[in-house]
């Protein structure tokens, strides 16, 4: 029991994910800055930002259901911690709980639902448009993402546990090496971009169009929750891809640890580069893209996986 509490609160969970998430957030800002010929923020910048938000005022809106407004970021934050714990457990300790992939899909769903609930509770026009766009994004990328996850499940012999997928990869080589694996991995990276709300799919939070969208009315500690949750997604989403397609990380030797971290960082940097070399797409283009290109591509990967290529 104590062990699981440790998992949840300290190592792959809350403490580690916050600190590591903020560091990855710094990497994101730094790499973006370097791409744009800038120096970029200092190392502790995200820590300062989040800490500062804790000292600011929370502004609640009169005549709005502000219980939802307050509770939404907290639930979202909790669900993100849980997801990170589960993914981190299989990433670092190779222990899992039964059927954790299904659990992860639903927890990530909760995050989006909280974002929609919290922003639409304010009654602000921009927030409501942001909520609407977030919902449309959810509809468009969810199918592709689930099918991407199906590929390793099928290849590992219809196992929905992360640990079993890892064990399969240890025995038979990485899934990314197969034809279905590489297709699913590429679609998976695009889905990650959408899940993270990064350019080109930051349609829901488009700052120059709808002023930060869902987060517009949040201030102070509640905003800090959203920011932290957002940075934590940097931790577990690439990790999940590493586990599903690239064989995870093993502590067998020093070299394998470096390889594991390298795989993780590579995916992060690919995401950041995609972010920095594309403009934001329109919501209809995004839906078109996911339903006409990404989902069929993922479906092909699933079919290939079933025939065993």
């Amino acid at each position: 029991m104590l062990k699981y509490l440790f998992y949840l609160l300290v190592f792959p969970g809350f403490l580690f994910a916050s600190v590591f998430g903020l560091i990855v957030g710094w990497i994101e800002r730094k790499v973006s800055a370097r791409v744009q010929f800038r120096v970029g923020p200092p190392f502790f910048q995200n820590f300062y930002d989040v800490f500062k938000l804790w000292g600011k005022e929370i502004i609640l809106i009169k005549n709005s259901p502000y219980f939802i407004f307050i509770i939404a970021p907290i639930i979202a934050f909790a669900s993100v911690i849980m997801t990170t714990t589960i993914v981190g457990m299989s990433f670092f300790y190779h222990v899992g709980i039964g059927g954790d992939l299904i659990f992860i899909i639903y927890l990530m769903f909760i995050y989006s639902v909280c974002l929609i609930l919290g922003s639409s509770s304010t009654g602000n026009v921009y927030s409501s448009i942001g909520a609407g766009r977030e919902m449309k994004m959810l509809i468009s990328d969810e199918l592709a993402f689930v099918m991407v996850i199906l590929v390793p499940i099928i290849q590992a012999g219809y196992k929905i546990d992360l640990t079993q997928i890892l064990a399969y990869q240890n025995a038979n080589g990485m899934i990314i090496g197969t034809a279905s694996g590489i297709i699913a991995f590429i679609v998976g990276i695009i889905c990650l971009q959408a899940k993270m709300g990064m350019v080109p799919f930051d349609i829901a939070e488009a700052e120059t169009e709808i002023v930060g969208g869902p987060l517009m009315e949040y201030s102070g500690p509640l905003l800090a929750f959203w920011k932290l949750a957002h940075y934590m997604m940097y931790v577990f989403l690439p990790m999940l891809l590493v586990i599903l397609f690239c064989g995870g990380m093993s502590f067998a030797s020093f070299g394998s640890i470096i390889a594991g971290i390298g795989k993780y960082l590579l995916i992060v940097v690919i995401m950041i580069l995609i972010r920095n070399t594309n403009p934001r797409v329109r919501i209809d283009t995004a839906i078109n893209f996911f339903w006409k290109w990404a989902s069929p591509l993922a479906l092909i990967a699933v079919i290939l996986a079933i025939i065993g290529v």
């Binding site: 800002r29 800055a33 923020p41 200092p42 930002d49 700052e207 517009m216 949040y218 201030s219 905003l223």
Partner: peptide, 20 residues
């Protein structure tokens, strides 16, 4: 890039609720 005040942690935000 000419001045890059992100070095000092200064950032331009879109919503006044986030501003210092």
């Amino acid at each position: 890039p000419g001045y890059d005040i992100e070095r000092f942690g200064i950032k331009l935000v879109g919503s006044v609720r986030h501003a210092d």
